[in-house]
Design a protein around this nucleic acid. Structure first.
Length: 650
DNA sequence: TTGGGGCTAAACATGT
DNA sequence: GACATGTTTAGCCCCA
């Protein structure tokens, strides 16, 4: 087997003293059992075979290390770095060959396992690098000897192929070295995680770009060979610059390993990683514990922590490996953040914007929206369900709320004039609905308003300030995709609210009954501070789960502070005619204008107002007139202060 | 712990 | 009788 030949090559290496080649002699492990004196001098050593051999040796070393740990022995190269680990006696009873990695994980505690793995990693890295160095030296010697032979016999036809083979092998060795070191690093990373839980991203090590680690490892190995390879001396100073570029996290996550500190290039980190910060502000120190990944050592004060940091987390393989882990964590998080941001942007772009509807006023408060819109309109999707994100090329541009420029197309049922007036005195719910009309219309997201608020808004959206129950139903389904499902539930809720709340007044006429809003009752019903059903919010959280939540919720909160600014007296109002819906309303409705004058009763309707029972409460109808009469005198620039004062109504 | 607001579900009554 | 509409009650959750 090629493993055997590789093993033999190691044995035959004259300079092999402490390298991997000495391992088979330490025990009759895999290499010893499989070894034989074929003496091929790795002339045709394949990478897979060599890797297999190296893995075998690594496992062998791990077993030996574990056994040494169990028996109280410690490797000279690591005994000063690693704290002693208590290993169960059962481990000591096992021969090295019997212990697999899985068994080690089962036997050892996470801390023990971590320590063992770290020791394994450190020693294996050291020995493997030594081994690779010897291999390369040997190959060089062989190559030189071949070249010498080639000079003596220049006409030999096979010489060129031989040299080429050696050169290829040399390159292969170098690549294999990098790959193997990478594998070891990954193994160590995986081994570190279960016990410590510091890296909580599942599969993260596997997701790390291999090129990053490979490059770094290559440079690390080159750095360690500085003594023997002066040509690589400059690499130590070029690690930071030659680190694989990461578009998302360029040099900011790359540590410049200065004095054992992972001084990130982030200026804040730079200032904080050299103990110049006030006590307890070190990013690696908190709650009396060392926050170095996988450490959690108790440090009473900053001085102790600094001492601990210098002793336990000095520049060594373990620290660099852990630092790389942290780098990868940051990188992955940044990548994830970028992806999620892009997704959110695409969603917002899709749900909020239409090519034909420029929206000069604000999107939901904290929502981001793109300047472009997907070619596929949300209306093209069934049920208005949020669609999978598409490419988002538009920059995130928060829009500012404007009151002077009013779009007339967001709400088809509203004419431009009315919209302008409405927005002058708009309630946040109407503003929210106007701004996010398309969103709620197409996205099956529960609006963050109570049923009462929505019913009121539906009624106020009509010029007559009255709606039949069926029209209210239609408004709900028309305005919100959410209410296109579970009709029985929410319709029942609508009826329940209409009946329950005194603010909704049922007005009978010859054709049936319409519902109006008693604003005073509505405001009395509102608590002074906030509205918005927690249940609604909760449902919306579950239904939406994105940025619209915050916006909608804030809008709902703000809505509570906006009393009847644009609401005419309605408790005894009747429109000049009941429209089949308010879709046909264009510019006829002028809520601001209709506020001052009492609504004209339509001659075709005989009205009978059903006033709900109000136990132990005086009839507030007359008072509502005084309240609603405030509307005509409201200044154009009526602001929240007035509304805040009004919301203090009992 | 309690009261209030809100939602959901259900039962019931009434009218078409 | 089916359906729509309206009323009422109960239970649950959440929050102040």
């Amino acid at each position: 087997m090629m493993v055997e030949s590789a093993s033999d090559s190691i044995r035959s290496t004259p300079t092999s003293q402490n390298g991997v080649g000495s391992i088979p002699s330490q025990s009759d492990g895999v290499g010893a059992r499989e070894g034989s004196a074929s003496g091929d001098n790795n002339g045709d050593l394949s990478t897979a075979e060599l890797l297999h051999f190296q893995q075998q040796q690594a496992l062998q070393m791990a077993r030996q290390l574990l056994l040494q740990q169990a028996t109280g022995l410690s490797t000279p190269s690591t005994e000063n770095k690693q704290p002693s680990v208590q290993v169960p006696v059962s481990v000591t009873m096992m021969s090295p060959q019997m212990i697999t990695q899985q068994q080690m994980q089962q036997i050892l505690s996470p801390a023990q396992l971590q320590a063992v793995m770290q020791q394994q990693q450190a020693l294996m890295l050291q020995q493997l690098q030594e081994y690779y160095k010897k291999q390369q030296e040997q190959l060089h010697l062989q190559l030189l000897s071949q070249q010498q032979a080639g000079k003596q016999q220049p006409k030999e036809a096979a010489l060129g192929n031989k040299q080429l083979a050696f050169q290829q092998q040399l390159l292969q060795m170098q690549q294999l070295q990098q790959q193997h070191l990478l594998n070891l690093q990954r193994q160590s990373l995986v081994g570190l995680q279960p016990g410590q839980g510091q890296v909580t991203l599942p599969g993260l090590p596997q997701a790390v770009s291999p090129s990053d680690l490979q490059q770094l490892l290559k440079e690390m190995s080159n750095c360690q060979e500085d003594s023997s390879k002066p040509d690589n001396a400059e690499l130590s100073s070029t690690i930071s610059t030659s680190f694989p570029s990461n578009k998302l996290s360029p040099p900011t996550v790359h540590p410049s390993l200065v004095n054992g500190q992972n001084a990130l290039h982030n200026p804040r980190r730079d200032s904080s990683s050299h103990y110049e910060l006030p006590p307890s502000s070190h990013p690696l120190y908190g709650h009396g514990e060392c926050r170095w990944p996988g450490c959690e050592a108790l440090c009473e004060d900053m001085g102790q922590f600094v001492k601990h940091l210098n002793t336990e987390h000095a520049l060594d393989d373990r620290s660099t490996a852990q630092c790389r882990v942290q780098m990868q964590v940051v990188q992955q998080l940044e990548i994830q953040l970028a992806k999620e941001s892009e997704r959110l942007q695409a969603m917002m772009t899709h749900l909020h914007m239409r090519p034909s509807e420029p929206k000069p006023f604000s999107q939901p408060l904290n929502l981001v929206s793109g300047a472009t819109h997907n070619k596929m309109s949300p209306d093209n999707y069934p049920d208005g369900l949020p669609q999978p994100p598409t490419s988002a090329t538009a920059p995130i541009t928060p829009m500012r709320a404007g009151t002077s420029v009013i779009s007339s197309s967001s709400l088809p049922s509203m004419g431009p004039v009315r919209r302008r007036i409405v927005d002058k005195f708009c309630t946040p719910i109407s503003s929210e609905l106007a701004q996010n009309h398309e969103f709620y219309k197409n996205a099956e997201v529960r609006p963050p308003f109570t049923y009462a608020s929505l019913i009121r808004q539906a009624i106020l959206d009509t010029p007559d300030r009255q709606l039949t129950l069926n029209e209210i139903y239609n408004w709900f389904t028309r305005m919100f995709a959410y209410f296109r499902r579970n009709t029985a539930t929410w319709k029942n809720a609508v009826r329940h609210n209409l009946s329950l709340h005194k603010c909704f007044v049922r007005v009978e006429n010859v054709k049936g009954a319409v519902w109006t809003v008693d604003e005073l009752e509505y405001q009395k019903r509102r608590p002074p501070k906030m509205t918005g059903s927690p249940t609604l919010v909760k449902n919306m959280i579950s239904g939406l789960g994105y940025g619209a939540l915050n916006a909608s919720y804030q809008a709902a909160l703000a809505e509570s502070s906006f009393p009847l600014l644009n609401s005419p007296p309605l408790h005894n109002s009747s429109g000049s005619g009941i429209h089949g819906g308010h879709d046909d309303v264009t510019s006829t409705g002028e809520p601001g204008h209709s506020n001052g004058s009492s609504p004209r009763l339509s001659p075709q309707y005989s009205q009978s107002v059903h006033v709900k029972e109000e136990p132990a409460e005086e009839d507030v109808r007359p008072a509502s007139v005084s309240v609603t009469n405030q509307n005509p005198v409201l200044p154009e620039d009526h602001d929240l202060e007035t509304e805040t004062a009004m919301e203090d109504l009992p």
